[in-house]
Simulated assay, not measured.
Amino acid sequence: MRKESLAFLEKLLDAPSPSGYEQPAQRVFRDYVAPYCDELTTDVMGNVFARISGKGKDLPRVMIVGHTDEIGLQVKYIDDKGFLYFAAVGGVDAHLTAGKRVNVHTAGGPLAGVIGKKPIHLMDAKDRETVVKLESQYIDIGAKDKKEAQKLVRVGDAVTFESAFTRLVGDRVSSRGFDDKAGCFVVAEVLRLVAAGKKKLAVDLYGVSSVQEEIGLRGGTTSCYAVNPDVGICVEVDFATDQPDVEKKHNGEVALGKGPILTRGANINPHLFDLLSVAADKEKIDVQHTANPRATGTDANVMQISRNGVATALVKIPLRYMHTPVETVSLGDLEAAAKLIVATLERIASREEFIPR
């Protein structure tokens, strides 16, 4: 991967962005894409829009979107001893939280803490087999009492898991937040590649870094309404099934390093799917396939039914260990996804071609 792109990816992943608190990551996105677009704006929700105008008149509008928000925690209560009780932002697994290092994002900057747990020596046998509910877990920042903790932390402060970008064997990398900063990264790389192209596209392109996907596809809903696209491509992550404890019958045969995933189903416009497939074949980009017979739980869902309807598709990145601090992807899959989308954009001729006949 290009060293500048890799540096951007690391910086994007490092920036905290639980749903509703995305702006540290959005600032990283804006800074990176600014040289590549004709117009860069942010709406009241916090969605970022980067537009590259095409060549011609009355061009189809194409929106590509990846959400920048990640799962996390939010401080709900500070007890008399200075321990912080919290709630989940998005789908946080209570199996994983105890014993984790965290950062509490305060007005004074990030504050280190740990999620404590009763020692196993002091637990009854039955309690050792029980998962402690999130509402009963707590963060220890080292404060001696409530008064000291309240000088540093406010109710409502966001919390992220401590996680460093880690290089594994080959091109595999691990970090928190690849869901869906992987998609946000691909959107940025598409903008960069389009800007570097020799010819202008025959579409008006909008690259969107959306917010609040993890709590109900909220930024995807408002951003699509604002852009009013004819065509929408959502870049997301999907469950890899090449780890030992995942059943392939659930999500098909999906592996890291074998290319981006193209989804088929009711949420996907057939002609747009075909364009992606032809582009993959012509450009010799390996792709994988999954099936989804109903609305997907992604921004593609709300894009498709925005206003009078949008021709939508999903390009997904294979991901291991979703919603953990060690989400793992292949860098090659990220690069291939960006190239595939650019090759598809070059094949779009009109908005009418997506209407079923």
Rank of each mutant, 00 (worst) to 15 (best):
Y206A: 03
T68G: 13
L191R: 05
G252S: 08
R51M: 12
A50R: 01
A279S: 15
D204L: 07
D157Q: 00
T97R: 05
P325G: 08
I139S: 01
I233H: 06
G259M: 14
I317E: 06
F239T: 10
R27T: 07
D299P: 11
T324I: 02
D180N: 15
K3D: 12
L168V: 10
A202I: 02
G72P: 04
K118R: 10
C234F: 00
A300S: 15
A336S: 15
V235Q: 01
G177T: 09
G252R: 11
E253M: 12
D127Y: 11
S350P: 01
A125Y: 12
A280M: 08
I120F: 10
N267Q: 12
R307F: 08
T160G: 04
R101P: 02
R351V: 05
D157F: 01
G108M: 02
L262E: 05
A240T: 03
V254I: 15
A300V: 04
Y321L: 02
P293C: 13
V33E: 03
G219N: 05
E283M: 15
V153Q: 00
K118T: 13
D238I: 09
L59H: 14
V33G: 02
V159R: 00
C224T: 15
M45R: 05
N228H: 08
Q150H: 07
V159M: 04
E189T: 11
Y225M: 09
D43Y: 02
V231R: 04
R30Y: 00
G232T: 02
G183Q: 07
E22W: 04
V326M: 06
G332H: 12
C184V: 15
L345T: 09
R176W: 09
V104W: 00
K81E: 14
V203P: 02
E10H: 03
G220W: 00
R218F: 06
Y321F: 14
A343H: 12
V92M: 11
E352Y: 02
G177K: 12
G66H: 06
C37Q: 02
G219I: 05
L12V: 03
F83E: 04
N267Y: 03
F29R: 01
V33W: 00
E214F: 09
M1V: 12
Q243S: 14
R320S: 06
F178G: 02
V227Q: 07
F49K: 01
G72Q: 03
T42E: 15
E129I: 05
G177V: 09
A266Q: 10
D145H: 05
N47F: 04
D43Q: 05
R30G: 08
S277V: 11
T160C: 06
D238H: 04
A295E: 12
P293F: 13
P244L: 07
Q23A: 12
L40Q: 03
K146D: 04
D127K: 15
T241D: 09
K3P: 06
K249D: 11
Y77N: 11
H95T: 13
T222A: 12
N267M: 08
G82N: 04
S277T: 15
K249W: 03
G90V: 06
E253I: 15
A336C: 09
P356W: 03
H289M: 14
A279N: 11
V315D: 01
L73G: 01
G309I: 09
K249M: 07
V169D: 11
E148W: 04
E214T: 06
D204Y: 12
I215C: 07
M45A: 11
T166I: 09
I78K: 00
G197Q: 13
A266D: 06
